[in-house]
Simulated scan of single mutants.
Amino acid sequence: MATGAAYKGSDLVSDYNCSKCEIFDLNVEAQHFCSECEHYLCDNCVKSHNEYHRKHTVYKREDIPKWAGVTIDRCDQHGKKLEYNCNVHQELCCYRCREHNHGRCSSFSRLPDLAKDFLKTEEYKQLPAAVDKLRCSLDELKNDRMNNEALLNDTYKKTLAEVKTLRKKNKQHFGPAGEDDS
């Protein structure tokens, strides 16, 4: 896990970045998660967050499994509902992002309008078959792994038996060397 701050574009990689620091193009690893705001927070940002939002539930790093309850329909920067797609940048945005980050962009689509005909698309109709194909591939990989594990165990047992047989022959041929038979 990475620590400290770096500007975006650096080699610093972390699994969760502080949502507040990202606004300032800083790459800081999150140590906390607020389930109400759905923001990842570093040690510095969590202090100010907790001053303003005393009743929010904030999870620490050791509670990462509880972080998974994040919804994907909220803006990471503002916590507002995502309503638009900026066609220029191909980014989802809330009304605040549209005003502040995409004010000069000329083309937006409302998400309900984009989703309206999605169920009729060929891509959507092919999803069940694609999921079944992936599931079959995963099942094959799982079976292969289990077969390889069984083969490895058999090979181990055979090799161990061969080593014991060779030790026995060596003891008979050269006499006891004072070693254990295990």
Rank of each mutant, 00 (worst) to 15 (best):
A115P: 11
K125M: 04
S107K: 09
T57W: 02
A5Q: 08
K47C: 02
G4D: 03
D154R: 09
K164S: 15
E83Y: 12
L134K: 10
R98H: 08
V13N: 06
D73W: 10
D15Y: 12
N17G: 03
L134P: 06
R135I: 12
R104M: 15
T3R: 11
K20I: 01
E123M: 14
S14F: 08
Y95D: 13
T121W: 06
C75T: 00
P176M: 04
R145M: 13
E36M: 07
E51G: 01
C75S: 01
S48F: 05
K47R: 13
H49I: 03
A68L: 13
A177H: 08
N101V: 04
D154W: 06
T155N: 04
K142H: 14
Y7I: 00
K116Q: 13
R74V: 10
C86V: 03
E38H: 05
R74Y: 11
A68G: 07
C75A: 00
K47H: 07
E149G: 13
L41V: 00
D139S: 06
R96H: 09
T121R: 05
H173A: 13
F108Q: 00
E36W: 00
G69C: 03
N170H: 08
E123Q: 14
W67P: 05
R167A: 11
R145P: 02
A30Y: 02
C75I: 01
F118T: 07
S182I: 01
N87S: 03
K164C: 11
H53A: 05
V131F: 12
K164P: 04
A129V: 13
T71F: 04
F174H: 08
E29I: 03
F24N: 04
H173S: 14
T159K: 10
K171C: 14
Y7H: 07
V46W: 08
Y52E: 12
P128C: 05
N50S: 12
D180T: 15
A161T: 07
V46N: 06
A115C: 15
F33Q: 02
S48H: 04
C34Y: 06
R145S: 12
K55D: 01
C37Q: 13
E91L: 07
H100W: 14
A130N: 13
E29M: 09
F108P: 00
K8Q: 03
K169R: 15
D132S: 15
N153P: 03
K60I: 05
C105K: 03
N85R: 10
Q90L: 01
N101K: 03
R96T: 14
F24E: 03
N101D: 06
C75G: 05
H173W: 10
G9A: 01
S137A: 15
E91M: 11
Q90N: 08
C86A: 10
R54N: 09
E36L: 08
E123S: 11
G9N: 00
Q126F: 08
L92N: 12
E22A: 11
F118P: 02
Y16F: 15
D139I: 04
G175L: 10
L134Y: 09
N147M: 14
E62M: 00
E38V: 04
H102Y: 06
L160D: 05
D76G: 10
H32D: 08
H49G: 11
T71W: 00
K171S: 14
R110N: 15
T121H: 07
A130C: 13
P112S: 09
Y7Q: 04
A30Q: 01
E91V: 08
C105R: 04
D117E: 12
K142V: 06
L92V: 11
H56G: 06
Y156R: 15
R74D: 05
